[in-house]
């Protein structure tokens, strides 16, 4: 009796809730699979998709965003074995699920911790509340491929931003599989867009893009490239998260900085009188 021939999976990009191949028609061999090699045009398409998703996602209630993120954690837990088969250690998958749950809970709490009434000296109501900045470009850490990725995506989107993520070029399969998790989690298309390929190709396009509001350089390991991207980002004054130190401990409590850096604070004044 012959052994069953397995059906192999095609690893593609994740843009606007769909899984297209690179418009360039290119792929590269990594982790024993052909993975889409995203072009500059793919990066621009992803920004368009992310921008289109901002209104709905930022406008959703915090409760709703929390529910959807929690749903993503449920789906991630359900695919645990799939990640393990890709070589992600089991305890890294567990940590990624827990991190996702931790961020999900922030959706309807961050503005309570990071906003509030200001006692101005006058007959005015004065309230500060955070709002998402908009479209965030993210260079994900090369590894840990899953925990690192989750740790940069979740804090950006939980507050209502949308993201274009350049995934780990050396271990992209976890990213594409995470895209499949997100695609089945009630997350609106375009909130998370994932590009696989060379950072040197996609990141400069994203850093220079005038319709991107912030850039997270966490995964950029080359200091010169990081500086160059930051210079490009300065053109429209993108908010910048600088690269993580090489010895960054991804299992540690991440704190709230990743969320707050990607927020704007809006303060409202209103007189009080009869």
């Amino acid at each position: 009796m012959s052994e069953r021939v397995a059906v192999r999976k095609t690893y593609k990009l994740f843009i606007g809730g769909k899984f297209p191949r690179s418009e360039s028609g290119r792929s590269y061999l990594v982790q024993s699979s052909n993975v889409s090699l995203a072009s500059r045009k793919d990066a621009r398409d992803a920004v368009v998709a992310a921008r289109a998703a901002v209104k709905g996602w930022a406008g959703a209630t915090a409760y709703n965003r929390g529910q959807i993120l929690y749903r993503a954690a449920e789906m991630l837990e359900g695919r645990r074995e799939q990640f393990v088969a890709l070589g992600v250690p089991g305890d890294e998958v567990d940590a990624a699920v827990d991190r996702w749950v931790w961020y999900a809970g922030w959706a309807d709490k961050l503005s309570q911790v990071y906003g509030g009434a200001n006692p101005v000296a006058g007959p005015y109501f004065n309230l500060s509340a955070p709002e998402p900045t908009g479209v965030v470009a993210v260079v994900a850490p090369e590894r840990p491929a899953l925990l690192g990725l989750v740790s940069v995506i979740a804090p950006a989107i939980v507050t209502g931003n949308t993201v274009v993520v350049a995934a780990s070029p050396t271990e992209p399969l976890a990213a594409v599989t995470l895209a499949e998790v997100l695609a089945t989690s009630d997350l609106p298309g375009g909130v998370v867009n994932i590009l696989t390929g060379r950072i040197t190709e996609t990141a400069p396009t994203l850093a220079a893009h005038m319709d991107v509001n912030a850039i997270d350089l966490t995964g950029v390991t080359d200091a010169d490239l990081a500086a160059d991207l930051e210079v490009k980002a300065a053109e429209n004054l993108k908010r910048v998260l600088r690269p993580a130190p090489a010895d960054h401990d991804w299992s540690a409590d991440p704190g709230v900085t990743r969320m707050t850096t990607l927020l704007e604070t809006k303060t409202v004044w209103h007189p009080k009188g009869v």
């Binding site: 409760y63 929390g66 931790w102 809970g105 922030w106 709490k109």
Partner: peptide, 10 residues
């Protein structure tokens, strides 16, 4: 329950 679940770890 959902809201306070999210507080338990923060």
């Amino acid at each position: 329950f959902f809201y306070y679940a999210g507080w338990a770890d923060k």
